[in-house]
């Protein structure tokens, strides 16, 4: 009797404690396979509903989307023509100097079916998973360049961490002068290129690409362009603003 009264008196606190323990266990076991599997399974179920709803929304944007795709198609056709010429020229040059042809990227098309944008946290949910032969840490690219990487991969749904996330880092170089650095996003419309010593040859408009030094991102993926550079006598490194490409 006394126990019952005690339980009903402290019921709210016990429920709070119980829920806090469960939540904290989930937070602390984020790397646990079972927890990830459960989350991705749940995301798959919910994602299917979301996919259906977004398909209705897509219907109303078809005309506009068509117009954009038509323009993009024309632009790409022109670029393709120029690239075909360059490819042939490149092949001839490679043959001359005996370079082996570099491996091509295998691309898997994916659709964004969910987005999360809370301040400095930016991620998206994609409709691809292990059944599409994708795996953790694979880079995500659009026609303009690097967007992010796969963070959690389920059977048919995945989560991707975007370049515009506070915890995302990529080793990069300037295409023209091969100056190395690390790109990071700290809020706002621009990214920053860190770890570049002062007086390095970096100019506004320089194209930034992935360096390929890490094991995650292949070399030469476009990341953005240099928007501005500045140096301070008090600091060892340059301040470089990067306009990301997507």
């Amino acid at each position: 009797m006394k126990t019952d009264r005690l339980f009903s008196y402290y019921k709210d606190y016990l429920v709070l404690l119980f829920l806090v323990i469960i939540s904290m266990s989930l937070v602390l076991s984020n790397q646990n396979k079972q927890v990830t599997y459960f989350k991705l399974w749940l995301a798959g179920v919910m994602g299917s509903f979301q996919e259906g709803i977004s398909a209705i929304g897509d219907y109303f944007y078809l005309a506009k989307k068509n117009e954009i795709l038509l323009l993009q198609n024309t632009r790409l056709a022109l670029e393709n023509e120029a690239m075909r010429e360059l490819r042939l020229e490149n092949a001839r040059l490679r043959e001359l100097i005996g370079f082996r042809e570099k491996s091509k990227l295998n691309l898997v098309a994916a659709k964004v079916i969910g987005k999360k944008k809370r301040g400095f946290i930016n991620d998206i949910m994609l409709n691809v998973g292990t059944i599409d032969s994708v795996s953790k840490n694979m880079p995500i690219v659009v026609s303009d360049g690097l967007v992010g990487k796969l963070h959690q991969v389920g059977k048919n749904k995945s989560f991707a961490q975007l370049l515009l996330d506070q915890n995302f880092r990529v080793s990069i170089i300037t295409q023209r002068s091969r100056v190395k650095g690390i790109i990071a996003w700290k809020g706002g419309s621009y990214c920053v290129m860190n770890e570049v010593p002062k007086r390095s040859d970096v100019k506004v408009g320089d194209l930034i690409v992935t360096s390929g030094f890490g094991e995650i991102f292949p070399e030469g993926l476009q990341v953005g362009t240099v928007e501005s550079t500045s140096e301070s006598p008090r600091e060892l490194f340059m301040k470089i603003k990067i306009k990301h490409c997507f």
């Binding site: 709070l16 904290m24 937070v27 990830t36 989350k39 919910m46 991620d123 949910m125």
Partner: peptide, 18 residues
């Protein structure tokens, strides 16, 4: 449910909401 749709810490939104 909020946590399910994000790639960050699973359980964090549940914890803060409780």
């Amino acid at each position: 449910l909020q946590d399910v749709f994000s790639a960050d810490f699973f359980g964090l939104a549940a914890l803060t909401k409780v």
